[in-house]
């Protein structure tokens, strides 16, 4: 699946590992929660990049103690209508303090990229020939935001206040 961060199209360095796959000796791995839990000690010892992918039924609190060990957390959108991962993303960033790559995977639509970026996602798997261009379009639709959220953008209220303070 084509992948982009907030600047450019990227080649995914991670190998996806499900419960039926054997663990390769080398390489960056993106594992399911079951694999993470089953092979926790072995995976923690590896020096290479490691990520966990969660379904929308899997609350990230389960991995909150391991956050510092992870390079990537991928959250699945089983359908674009399932908005749980927006809340998960905020918890992962703002409450559990994750600073690595937070990836949106699954049914990810162009129009949602902006919301996803606002709650803390910084990479996106999009069914598109050029996801970076999609992101560029979606991210520039708006220049004003009412809400505080994971991306630290200044809200309309903060901008009003700043304007007042600086004449």
């Amino acid at each position: 699946m084509p992948l982009t961060n907030s600047h450019q199209n990227i080649i995914d360095p991670y190998i996806k590992i499900g419960p039926d796959d054997s663990l390769p000796a080398e390489g960056a791995l993106l594992v399911t929660l079951a694999v993470w839990q089953d092979h926790w000690e072995r995976l923690m010892r590896r020096q290479e990049l490691i990520g966990v992918q969660l379904t929308s039924d899997e609350h990230p609190e389960i991995i909150s103690d391991d956050i510092d060990q992870l390079d990537l957390i991928a959250l699945e959108f089983p359908t674009f209508r399932d908005g749980r991962a927006y809340s998960y993303a905020r918890l992962i960033r703002e409450r559990y303090g994750f600073t690595g790559e937070l990836r949106a995977v699954g049914d990810v639509l162009l129009e949602q990229l902006h919301y996803m970026e606002r709650v803390g996602f910084n990479s996106f798997e999009v069914l598109s020939n050029d996801p970076a261009t999609d992101f560029e379009i979606a991210a520039n639709d708006f220049t004003v935001w009412y809400q505080t959220s994971g991306d630290q953008r200044r809200t309309a209220t903060m901008l009003r206040q700043g304007k007042k303070n600086h004449g």
Partner: peptide
């Protein structure tokens, strides 16, 4: 109203 307009987290509620 302002809080809820285009809320990034709560635009795809159940």
């Amino acid at each position: 109203r302002q809080y809820s307009v285009l809320h990034p987290e709560f635009s795809y509620l159940p």
